[in-house]
Simulated assay, not measured.
Amino acid sequence: MCRTIAQLDGDIAACRACPRLVAWREQVAREKRAAFRDENYWGKPVPGFGPEDARLLVVGLAPAAHGGNRTGRMFTGDRAADVLIAAMHAVGLADRPTSLHRDDGLRLLGARVTAPVHCAPPDNKPTPLERDTCRRWLDIELGLLAPTLRSIVVLGAWGWQALMPALIESGWRVPKPRPKFGHGVRYPLDPVAPGRAELHLFGSYHPSQQNTFTGRLTPAMLEAVLGDAARAAGLRRR
């Protein structure tokens, strides 16, 4: 059992539990994208990123093949990262508006980013088995963050559904029927295990190119959700 976030991050990076994901992430790291042909790809599972006492957790889907799988840091080096980190900076959750590479000095302020699946999947589509196999890492991460965690922002319906069983396993009560995903929705979750507090669950459309290029998600929309979540976590004045 991982006792610290640092130990968790190291164990995640060494995981080889899903053969299809291992093969794909390593193939991408060998073949590379032409624009990054001179770079050394990470090519391993990508741990979460942010402080071990985070009050707010942002949950995505999985690392991008030429983003996190290249740079070795969640939401780093791709267009979704550009949108998310700029929005986090705008509401005071990051010390700069860009996330370019693992050693760029970026600090998240009271917040952490993670995903239900830690390897880049083909076509950005993990299988249900891969999602369920990887969930143990999310269970552990939620447990380690529990003493300080007060709000979660989930980016997209896929991540929302993947998170629900992890919340139950990690000591919060999820209503039945389960809360429905939507952009801007907010649900309070009561704790049912020691060391937990009320948790505020927020939904946002994922900052994918499809959503941002079509205007389904704008920077102002994402900033509004992140700002509300930061206030719920006690990270911003009301």
Rank of each mutant, 00 (worst) to 15 (best):
L144T: 12
P116G: 03
A6Y: 05
L144A: 12
P191T: 10
D38S: 14
R178F: 11
T214V: 03
P47Q: 11
L109D: 08
G77A: 10
A87I: 02
W42I: 07
E52R: 12
Q27F: 13
L108D: 11
E130S: 00
G227L: 10
Q210L: 09
R70E: 07
D82E: 14
F213P: 01
P97D: 13
I140E: 13
R186W: 13
G227Q: 01
T76D: 10
P19L: 04
D123C: 00
R33V: 09
N40T: 15
E31T: 15
G67D: 04
Q7N: 04
A197W: 00
A14V: 07
A86N: 09
R20E: 15
R112D: 05
A230C: 06
F181W: 15
L84W: 13
T4L: 09
A81H: 02
R25H: 15
L189F: 05
L56Q: 09
E169F: 00
G68C: 05
A64I: 00
L189N: 11
L155G: 11
L93A: 02
T114G: 03
R33L: 14
W137F: 15
R79L: 11
R135K: 15
E141L: 05
G72T: 07
H89A: 14
G171R: 13
H89F: 13
L144W: 09
A166R: 07
N211V: 00
V46R: 09
P45S: 09
K125V: 08
L142I: 03
P116H: 00
H118M: 13
H206F: 08
A29T: 09
V225M: 10
P121V: 08
R237Q: 13
K125L: 06
L56N: 08
